[in-house]
Design a protein around this nucleic acid. Sequence first.
DNA 1: TCATCAAATGAAACAATGTTGCATTTGTTT
DNA 2: AAACAAATGCAACATTGTTTCATTTGATGA
Lengths: 135, 135
Amino acid sequence: MNAVDILKNKRLKKTAQRIMLINLLQKTGISLTESEIKSELGDLYDRITFYRTVQKLLDANIIHRITVDNITVKYALNHSDHGHSENHSHFFCKQCHSVTCLENVAITEYRVPKGFKSEECEVLIKGICDSCMNS
Amino acid sequence: MNAVDILKNKRLKKTAQRIMLINLLQKTGISLTESEIKSELGDLYDRITFYRTVQKLLDANIIHRITVDNITVKYALNHSDHGHSENHSHFFCKQCHSVTCLENVAITEYRVPKGFKSEECEVLIKGICDSCMNS
DNA sequence: TCATCAAATGAAACAATGTTGCATTTGTTT
DNA sequence: AAACAAATGCAACATTGTTTCATTTGATGA
């Protein structure tokens, strides 16, 4: 689904920045940091609008945010409307610091201590990614 | 083990801030944010020293850091020298925003895509904690 | 116990990240 | 095309984290 349709589905205004951001995340396929997005968007980038755009798209469940060790904050498109947000699984490469969404890694159902209620689960696997392994 | 012994073990100087921070994390038992630590430490708190203290204790594997959604950064004591750092499991309460270390929840060994090398795994379970459930 | 030295501290100054209020512009709807 | 709500972008601010450097403190050995 293209950016305009995604926004239309969620009844969000189709503004230049939103469309650009969604297109960019679709095109690259991986998760990006603010500065990576900034350099891609060029003139269209405005820091304040960026934060508000991100907030809107997070609220609308169009993208999600991944934070690794408080070092890197990355944004990535959600792949399906439901499902993606409930159970994430990400791979963080310690070498190139890339973050890959692992769509095919099923998340275990964890048993939490008595009295707790589990609703979602995020898994972050750290290691070396395939392109760093082959070089 | 008390704060002084922990520092002695790691051959770190036993300075006031380090001892206070470790004692505080031991006393409260849960993970704390910088501002929570600040208000507990009072006059002893200095922002610059705090960051350096935290960095030292992270490097020495005495504490670890938990980040949730880029909203909250929390610090908590490691329970054992080894083991704790390799496989984390944390519970984030959506209501009171507390983070609890789940010591008894074993982390599944996840199978990563071909070409990737998995080294560590962090699990963050979100939901409602026991004290919020009972109120 | 005191002298010594490296490590830790704290002040200043900066850099990066994120937020709020407000006037202006834009997208949508009729 | 008009009207209105939503989004934008500017200024100004708040928070978070870092670097440099002179001073202080803790550990070590004489």
